[in-house]
Design a protein around this nucleic acid. Structure first.
Lengths: 331, 331
DNA sequence: TGGATAAATACAAACGATTGCATTCAGCAG
DNA sequence: CTGCTGAATGCAATCGTTTGTATTTATCCA
């Protein structure tokens, strides 16, 4: 910048202001300086800039993976979300610091490099750490959480509309004439819980009474879904539809059902959640609920930037849509 | 640090040296200072430090996603690799700057923030940019590439042993008595090409002549694998085994075969690649080739650190193993 | 033309660490 | 007691920006 000032015949401060678009500087000089900067391929030293401005230009993204579930939770979901956030951040000239190690307690972050070395934090998921997140919020570090609107929540969340998601998929099956619909998802977790709400709402609209045997706590990853289905079949619980909290659960259920000789969707219609790539290519292809992940990432970033600028922010609930495919969920 | 110097009754430079473990400083003073630092919960300003040292402490990780293939390339593979790298970097106190936007030309990086704002770059995959990567290497930026040992390569690579991977999976099928084995993978891409080499090697060992109709260029993502299988069936090409370059291809092939009334693995035995989570849970569960991704990430980081420290580094080829599961690949 | 006012630019001090060189101090030999 | 030596510590410059304040230059009206 010093050299640039020399060739432009002005002082460093003028160059600095010119490049920053400061109105103090005469429009003509500013134009001249920016031209020169371009010609000489001047690149600002972001390090010095950040140092001076006391900011890091880094946003930490914490994947709230469950240590128990072998990190597989929703698979593609994390990568897609990460990509969406990375894109949105790079537009704003922010870097993404990825925090991958399983967090048993988010408060540990307070004394870590993650805290000092970032201007804000995005948590992807709430895990079971709602209370810790609430405490974390008091540290006054800009933060935003992808998740659902839990009661007594102080931090800002962005999330898909899980109630609607559950409602739409259940209603889809009901409209197809299905009566006994299994709900597969762990309602102790925030998001499945809200989808279950939607499920109940759809049943109620059709005046169908909920049979508590039809709700099964399966984790997002798929390993236990097959067993759960087999248990149901053994107990002679009869059902003709299944609303699943992830595509993996759905695929696993379908495979268990098929192995038991049931036809999909004639005997049991199945609906998934997430619309992972596999959903459309699997056979039978899967009717599922899509969350707009790209939009989600963009809004997460936008809310965080607002906080960094000192604005107060409100929660955001994204539209959620049902993707109807021919085979598994009938049509 | 200034305050710390005050309470310790020494100068800032002494504190700096003490904390850096500089032997100029008396062991006793050093101990006293580090104790005080801990007690007062002193955290160094990495920003200032990096500024002074002219380094960023950031490593850029470039996902070489193919723009055409809708970024789905190998799905879980990227996330797992990313996680492994993030873990390895955080041990070294480095941040990970994620570069997600599809790269049509890696040389564009030279004039971007990614270049200035990082101490080194990890490319995950080579895409079809081998030559550009070679040119990039001349820029003298520390770099390392996850990929295969292409001819005329100047940059350093770390990769799984694709020849062995192709060899093992083919041999597995041959040992089960299969004779006509389809190879599904685009041999214009570096990695499938090497796997194909291994495939040929295994055939040769059993003195089986390769029929060129049995090799099909399908991209990693799965959409075209079903069609390819259907084409084969229509052309009455007979085969009793399939070596696939990704699990997604394998799953897609299985579903196409099943729909055509063929039994897996009785009529056709299928082997995948990658060992994605779905491979073990799908039905039939998938015999596949596993690359040690965690180790891969660790070695990538290690090689890059060596380069940053001015050492010269050599390539690295990781062990690759076959995961045999009961159903799809027979046993 | 002079002087007040406004616009444009320059000066210089920060930001928080590192590091070459100067300085202090203790120990010791002459 | 002086002078020398080496170990331990302090001084001060430096990295490349930004920004409050001082200064210069231009503008305009009486």
């Amino acid at each position: 910048m010093e050299e640039l000032a020399k060739v432009a015949g002005v002082s460093v401060s003028t160059v600095s202001r010119a490049l920053a678009g400061n109105p103090l500087i005469n429009a003509k000089t500013r134009a001249r300086i920016t031209d020169l900067a371009a010609k000489h391929n001047y690149q600002i030293n972001e390090n010095a800039r950040n140092f001076r401005l006391q900011k890091t230009n880094v946003i930490a993204v914490v994947l709230m993976l469950d240590a128990k579930s072998e990190q597989h939770t929703s698979d593609m979901f994390f990568l897609e979300m990460l990509g969406a956030i990375a894109d949105a951040l790079s537009v704003q000239n922010y870097d993404l610091l990825l925090v991958n190690s399983p967090m048993t307690n988010v408060l540990d972050i307070h004394n870590s490099r993650i805290f000092r070395q970032s201007d804000g934090i995005i948590f992807i998921g709430q895990g079971n750490q709602h209370d810790h997140l609430n405490t974390f919020y008091e540290l006054e570090k800009p933060m935003v959480v992808w998740g659902s609107n839990l009661p007594d929540r102080r931090y800002c969340t962005v999330g898909a509309d899980n109630v609607v998601g559950g409602y739409l998929s259940t209603k889809h099956l009901l409209n197809l004439g299905r009566k006994d619909i299994v709900f597969m998802g762990d309602i102790n977790m925030p998001e499945p819980k809200q989808r279950f709400e939607g499920y109940l709402k759809a049943l109620k609209e059709k005046s169908i009474r909920f049979d508590k045997h039809l709700q099964i706590d399966v984790p997002f990853e798929m390993s236990h879904a097959s067993e759960a289905i087999n248990d149901l079949l053994q107990q002679n619980v009869s059902f003709d539809g299944a609303v699943c909290c992830s595509d993996l659960i759905a695929l696993s259920a379908i495979s268990a059902l098929t192995e038991s000789g049931l036809r999909i969707p004639e005997d049991v219609a199945v609906v998934g959640y997430d619309d992972i790539a596999l959903a459309s290519y699997s056979s039978p292809s899967l009717t599922t609920v899509r969350q707009n992940i790209v939009q989600g990432g963009r809004i997460l970033v936008q809310k965080l930037m607002a906080q960094i600028n000192g604005d107060t922010v409100t929660d955001s609930v994204l539209k959620t849509e049902l993707i109807v495919r021919r085979s598994s969920g009938a049509w």
